[in-house]
Design a protein around this nucleic acid. Structure first.
Lengths: 154, 154
DNA sequence: TCTTAATGTAAGCATTACGATTACACTTAG
DNA sequence: CTAAGTGTAATCGTAATGCTTACATTAAGA
């Protein structure tokens, strides 16, 4: 089973960015509906997002979720890091015996390699903000609609 | 459970690069010993490596495995791609309903994003060859030995 | 030709991590 | 006081992978 936490959290944040334009809050139920998922799953993901100061949750009646900052100020790297954090992209083997120069040092080497590759990935994510991503989503939507119209016209 | 195929294959290829210097072949048993793993596991990974022309296997008595090319000519990207291939780094959610502009287009958007991030990672891996990696391993080993000597001297 | 040493491959079990759901405690507006 | 929210724990199902065993296949060499 693949890890869907990042795509899920990303969609949540993007939906919150849309709601923010209307100065609205979302409930975990609304977010769950957009995902085709369960509100409890959404709330579980809200915990680390809240801890990272990406969203703000309000308990009680009329409560809900909103972005803690302007979407221009939130990078996808922050979202990824808030959600994933501990898990390394590449995990190394454990219990490798020391029987040659390779087996003895592969652990350190792989750690270096994994860090470097992971940094490259995070840098890429750091170059994108939530605001830009929302613009991109709308660009994709416009293209989709234009395409549908064209097909209908045939 | 984390996917250990890439680190496993990488160690195998590095061990084969060492063996190549001595003009030796390795058996899957030898490689498995260095990994602390089972020969059948090694042989399963040998199949895609062989298909990608990274290693050459020889069946029968006195058979075994060797690098198919010089270690300078094999990038870590090739090793990664040979082993992982199908599996995307980021998987998107399935069955997302179309209830708003975000949920309707998040799939396409995430696909674009995942491709870009994955390319960044593969580029990083493409900049490293097996030969360079082996040199790096030996550098780490030398540093480790120097450190041990220093501690013993205290 | 027979034995031996190797790869190729399929089948089955255990483990792990995550998704999904349910349930309930807690909080706050009106 | 009630309704509408979040916070969180517990449980189950499932998919992917590692690990192991077993056996078929192949080829060298006595």
């Amino acid at each position: 089973m693949n890890d869907l936490r990042f795509p899920t959290a990303l969609q949540m944040v993007l939906s919150l960015a849309v709601a923010r334009e209307a100065k609205r809050r979302c409930t975990s139920m609304e977010l769950a509906t957009g995902l085709g998922a369960n509100p409890a799953l959404v709330r579980a993901l809200l915990v680390p997002l809240s801890r990272a100061n990406i969203v703000t949750t309000t308990i009680g009646k009329n409560g809900g979720v909103e972005l803690a900052r302007a979407p221009e100020e939130i990078s996808l790297r922050e979202v990824y890091f808030a959600i994933i954090d501990d898990k390394r992209l590449f995990e190394r083997r454990t219990n490798v015996p020391s029987v040659c120069v390779v087996s003895t040092n592969i652990g350190s080497f792989f750690e270096e390699l994994a860090t470097e590759v992971e940094d490259a990935m995070l840098t890429k994510l750091g170059q994108r903000t939530v605001a830009q991503s929302l613009m991109e989503i709308r660009r994709i939507d416009a293209a989709r609609i234009a395409n549908v119209t064209e097909i209908v016209a045939d």
